[in-house]
Design a protein around this nucleic acid. Structure first.
Lengths: 196, 196
DNA sequence: ACCGGTTGTAAGCGTCTGCTTACAAAAGTA
DNA sequence: TACTTTTGTAAGCAGACGCTTACAACCGGT
């Protein structure tokens, strides 16, 4: 895995990217606060002082991670698919998934709990809420969107943190069906459940 | 506030209780990990070494807090009222409420995020889930209960951690109506919404 | 008055945290 | 080659953390 990095040394861009990727993974898994800069550097295979050379602080690195692929990923997804996409991303969190799924929500919601990374996390949450709010004509669209988003947060946390019984071991398709059916009560423009 | 404590010194029971109450408040507000033993001792108005004399460790104190009033409170509430009671407790979290509301969920869910206090927190979550699971005849009752519980977790966190827009400022009655209506899709025995 | 156990206090230990510094090795430029 | 700049490394700093220790103050019983 470090074959590439050892092959070509002294590559600032590669070092930066390695740090960003390692940080994204750890922030998603453990949240902002429980991730240490030493862990990030170790996973990236890089001296931890470089983290501060390239990003200045742990907080700045976090912002770069969130503002990067995460936001872009969200903006490329049509609103009516956001919920299912995000939910499936959350449900697949446990398994070793290399692909670029919606890791954004995981990262920001998981980290929002701490409080330090709140500002950046809140920004991303808002963007998700705005997308969901377009799915209803109700007056309280914003509130409904927030509630659905809160549900995602809870599901993600329950699954990944507490290795809890029913939800932790459940079939993603089943969970998806239940949640989407239920969410349609609040967001009436949500497409019908088409997953087999 | 410390008038009582200064009046009668050298009272082990009072010291213990002061520590438990201070810890309960701080765990609910900040979660397990972000609460320090020094803070707990300070709020209780006692020397922090006493925390270790009476409880042995921060973890043990946490368990005593959760196992104490919290569990008892839950067991006294009939299953069909648990959801609304817990939800209203969560929604009132911001305001200064002295009364014994359902602080249990707040504490354990907020703390479950960290991972250290997971075992104790999971136990309490399970008890809540069991109560909710009695409200449906569906085969996947456990999963449905977990999902609803996860929703509570998400709502509580979104409201108290991120001071986020719509949900943070919303009227508890309104939130209650939306959530309960929606949850009835999954837990059909949930009583009709009777709040004005 | 004396003594043994209980309750409270001050100081500090060892470890971990985010972050900094001083310096060495490689690359670019002449 | 000689010099500057960029990239990487090792060591460590100050502060916070959970927890411990040594000791003083108080109390009840005799």
């Amino acid at each position: 895995m470090t074959a590439y990095r050892t092959a070509r040394k002294r590559d600032a861009a590669a070092t930066r990217q390695a740090l960003v990727q390692a940080a994204a993974g750890l922030f998603a898994e453990r949240g902002y606060e429980r991730t240490t800069v030493r862990e990030i550097a170790a996973r990236a295979g890089v001296n931890q002082a470089l983290l501060f050379r390239y990003f200045g602080s742990k907080q700045s690195l976090f912002e770069e991670v969130v503002a990067g692929e995460s936001l872009r990923h969200l903006r490329e997804t049509p609103p009516e698919s956001v919920l299912e996409t995000a939910l499936r991303g959350l449900l697949a969190a446990g398994s070793e998934d290399q692909g670029q799924r919606h890791r954004a929500l995981e990262i920001c919601l998981r980290s929002a709990v701490g409080g330090t990374a709140t500002r950046t996390g809140a920004l991303l949450s808002e963007e998700y809420a705005d997308a969901l709010a377009t799915l209803t004509e109700a007056e309280d669209a914003a509130l409904r969107a927030d509630l659905v988003l809160a549900w995602l947060l809870g599901i993600g946390l329950t699954r990944s943190v507490v290795g809890k019984g029913a939800l932790a071991g459940a079939d993603p398709d089943e969970v998806c069906a239940l949640v989407l059916d239920c969410a349609r009560t609040m967001l009436e423009k949500l497409p019908a459940n088409e997953s087999r």
